[in-house]
C-alpha cells in the first residue's frame, strides 16, 4: 500500500472547527495508509480546533495565526504550506468557502481537483474519488493524475472516527502575506437568520413542502417537531414562498441530511430534494398525489392530504410521549 502525506484544512468559525473538519480525518487516514495526516488551521484562536483535530486522528497540526481567513488568504497560506511541506493530498471541506478555496489552490499549484467527494476507494492504481453528477442521480468515479491531489469532502459523507488521546505535535507557522494576495474586502456582514438550525446532526427531521397549502398550515409542522424533539426541514419552494428561512432547506442547494427518521408532509420529491434526504434511515411521506416520486424512496407512504394527517400524527405522538 502506498503511503501518502495528507493535509486536512480545517475551517473554523469563532475558533471552533466546522462540522466537516473532524469528519475529514477518517477518509484522510484511509488515504494516508502509513503516511502522515496533518491538520492545518488558520485562525487567531486555534487551540480548540487543534485539540479536536488531534483527538479525531490527526498526527500533527499546523496552525497559522491569522485574524480573518477569507478564502483569498486561505489560498495564499495553503499554497505556501503545500510548497513547504509537500503533501500528496490536500482535503478541504465542501463549505461555500472551501468550494472557493480548493479550485483556486489547485490551479495555483498545478494540481487536479475534485469537489464534493462522498466516498473513496484505495486501489493499486491510486485513489478513486466518488463525486455526484446531476445533483446525485449519477455518481462519477474519478482519478487525479497529478502528484498533488486537491479534493473537497462533502459534509456528513463521512462519520467522525473514534475519539482518542490528543497526542501529536502542534506546529505554529509564521504567515507572510505577499502584497496583492488580498484584493477584496468584506465591508459589511449582515446576519439575517438568527435561529440556529442543525439539520445535519438531527436524529428526526419533519419536513413540510408546498403541499401543506398555506404558511399557516406549514407552521403546524413545528408543533409535531416539538413533540418529537425533531428539527423542521423545508423544500426550496417553501423557502421561496417565504414560509420559513433558508436555514431549514434540505436538498442539493440546502443541507444534505441523514437522520434516523425523516417525515415529509406535502413534499412531492423533486430530484434536488431527494438527493438531500435519501441517506435517512427511515422515511415516511404523506402526499395527495399517489404518483409523487417521494413514494419511491419512502418506507411508509400515505396517499392523502398532508394537512389532515399532520394533526392526527401530532395527537398520536403526544399520547405516545405522554405530553
Amino acid at each position: 500500500m502506498t503511503d501518502r502525506n495528507v493535509f486536512v484544512y480545517i475551517e473554523t468559525a469563532d475558533g471552533e472547527s466546522v462540522k466537516v473538519g473532524p469528519e475529514m480525518l477518517a477518509p484522510a487516514r484511509e488515504a494516508a495508509g502509513g503516511g502522515k495526516v496533518t491538520a492545518v488551521i488558520i485562525d487567531a484562536q486555534s487551540d480548540q480546533a487543534a485539540e479536536k483535530a488531534l483527538i479525531y486522528g490527526a498526527d500533527a497540526v499546523i496552525t497559522a495565526a491569522c485574524e480573518a481567513a477569507p478564502p483569498e488568504n486561505t489560498v495564499g497560506i495553503l499554497t505556501a504550506m503545500a510548497e513547504k511541506y509537500g503533501p500528496d493530498i490536500i482535503m478541504i471541506g465542501s463549505t461555500p468557502a472551501g468550494r472557493e478555496t480548493a479550485p483556486r489552490l489547485a490551479a495555483r499549484i498545478g494540481a487536479g481537483c475534485v469537489t464534493d467527494v462522498n466516498a473513496l476507494d484505495i486501489t493499486d492504481e491510486g485513489i478513486v474519488w466518488t463525486t455526484p453528477l446531476f445533483g446525485g442521480t449519477i455518481l462519477e468515479n474519478v482519478g487525479i493524475s497529478t502528484d498533488v491531489q486537491v479534493v473537497t469532502i462533502r459534509s456528513g459523507a463521512f462519520k467522525c472516527g473514534e475519539a482518542g488521546d490528543p497526542s501529536g505535535e502542534i506546529i505554529p507557522e509564521e504567515i507572510i502575506m505577499q502584497d496583492g494576495d488580498v484584493k477584496t474586502k468584506i465591508i459589511d456582514s449582515v446576519v439575517e437568520i438568527s435561529e440556529q438550525v442543525n439539520l445535519e446532526d438531527a436524529e428526526i427531521i419533519v419536513t413540510g413542502g408546498k403541499g401543506m397549502g398555506t404558511e399557516e398550515d406549514f407552521q403546524k409542522i413545528q408543533e409535531l417537531a416539538d413533540v418529537l424533539g425533531a428539527t423542521v426541514g423545508a423544500t426550496r419552494p417553501v423557502i421561496e414562498a417565504g414560509w420559513t428561512s433558508r436555514a431549514h432547506q434540505v436538498g442539493q442547494s440546502g443541507k444534505i441530511v441523514s437522520p434516523k427518521l425523516y417525515i415529509a408532509f406535502g413534499v412531492s420529491g423533486a430530484t434536488q430534494h431527494i438527493t438531500g434526504m435519501i441517506g435517512s434511515d427511515y422515511i415516511v411521506a404523506v402526499n395527495k398525489d399517489e404518483d409523487a416520486p417521494i413514494f419511491d424512496v419512502a418506507d411508509i407512504g400515505i396517499v392523502g392530504d398532508a394537512k389532515k394527517v399532520l394533526p392526527i400524527f401530532i395527537e398520536e405522538c403526544r399520547k405516545l410521549k405522554g405530553i
Binding site: 493524475s145 497529478t146 399517489e290
Partner: peptide, 26 residues
C-alpha cells in the same frame, strides 16, 4: 486533463416500502 473519469455509476437504489391508500384518512 488532470482529472480522469474512470466510470459512471448509479447510486444505490432505495426500495419503496408500504403505500397506504385508503378512503378514510384517519
Amino acid at each position: 486533463s488532470l482529472v480522469k473519469t474512470i466510470e459512471l455509476a448509479a447510486p444505490p437504489k432505495r426500495k419503496a416500502g408500504i403505500k397506504i391508500n385508503e378512503e378514510d384518512i384517519e
